[in-house]
């Protein structure tokens, strides 16, 4: 059994009448890349901010390395590196920003700063003030800052925001290589392709609640997530008929087709034929994380 590095218990946050996070619980295990998925406004950043002791939970708790974290007790965060937004000192250069933070860590020296600047491909701009950086450059500098003290847990909130496709691929590779080095990574993103490529497990957030969590493979695999497309003469009639099948989880019409998830194609065809509707064409399509996500957060 792997150690739990980060765990939330019924975490809840209200801003006035708005419930931003609604009783969520999930564990993040040592050494894994954990994806935290959700549409904009689903509560991802609020959850991360509570984990980082920046926001007071209304109820519930967050534990890091087995120790509770609150805005008044943030000692466990010394083993965490975080990238949340573009939190930097804008009038200082990229190199000076890293040197500034290095003052918190006796073990971090000039070589480490240069190594990280090179790793995030910012050596050429290291002496320019950060206020002149593009969003992508700020993201990369923020990532370097998060890695400065070789944290045991890396918390990344939308790390590829503002990056071009090449930059996004670089960050993905970097995340994977960090995981290979044994660093636990908590990756919040709405970019499903990115999460699918690098994450071992995910939690999907919708309106402040976790609607699914587990290994990526189990979320996107299996009958439940296979889409069966049936071409029929009357899609509306077929849709109505199929709604009676208990195992069908999602159904929609698409032109001359009915798209169904949750049941195998054989069952669907036999059922429709029994209802006097004979499909002219049947295809199946294994779902990816995107279709799972869309299904869950619709």
């Amino acid at each position: 059994m792997k150690n739990v590095v980060l765990e939330t218990h019924n975490l809840r946050k209200e801003f006035g009448d708005v419930v931003a996070v609604d009783g969520i619980s999930f564990p993040v295990y040592e050494g894994e890349v954990f994806g935290f998925l959700g549409p904009n406004g689903s509560g991802k950043t609020t959850t991360i901010s509570m984990a980082l002791g920046l926001i007071h939970p209304t109820a519930g708790s967050v534990e890091l390395f087995g120790e509770r974290v609150t805005p008044g007790h943030t000692a466990p965060l010394k083993r965490v590196g975080a990238l949340v937004g573009t939190a930097l000192v804008p009038y200082m250069s990229g190199r000076d920003n890293l040197a500034l933070l290095a003052r918190l860590y006796a073990e971090v020296g000039k070589e480490r700063i240069e190594e990280l600047l090179a790793r995030v491909n910012l050596t050429h701009a290291a002496d320019r003030p950060v206020k002149g950086y593009s969003t992508g450059m700020k993201q990369r500098l923020g990532l370097a800052a998060a890695l400065l003290h070789e944290p045991a847990l890396l918390i990344l909130d939308e790390p590829t925001n503002g990056l071009d496709p090449a930059g996004m691929a670089e960050i993905r590779n970097l995340i994977r290589s960090l995981a290979d080095e044994g660093i636990t990574v908590f990756l919040s993103s709405h970019l499903l392709h990115e999460v699918e490529q690098v994450c071992d497990r995910v939690a999907v957030l919708k309106q402040g609640q976790v609607v699914a969590q587990g290994p990526v493979a189990s979320l996107i695999g299996g009958e439940q997530q296979t889409v069966v497309r049936l071409r029929v003469s009357s899609p509306a009639a077929a849709q109505t008929a199929l709604q009676a099948l208990p195992e069908v989880s999602h159904i929609k019409t698409n032109g001359a087709y009915v798209e169904v998830t949750g049941a195998p194609s054989e069952t669907l065809v036999a059922y429709l034929v029994g209802k006097g509707i004979v499909p002219g064409e049947v295809t199946t399509e294994s779902s990816d994380l995107e279709s799972v996500f869309l299904g869950l957060t619709k």
Binding site: V80, A87, L104
Partner: peptide, 13 residues
């Protein structure tokens, strides 16, 4: 600038 967050998220009280 969110620069308080930069320090607080590193465990500085």
């Amino acid at each position: 600038w969110n620069s308080y967050q930069l320090l607080l998220s590193r465990g500085v009280p």
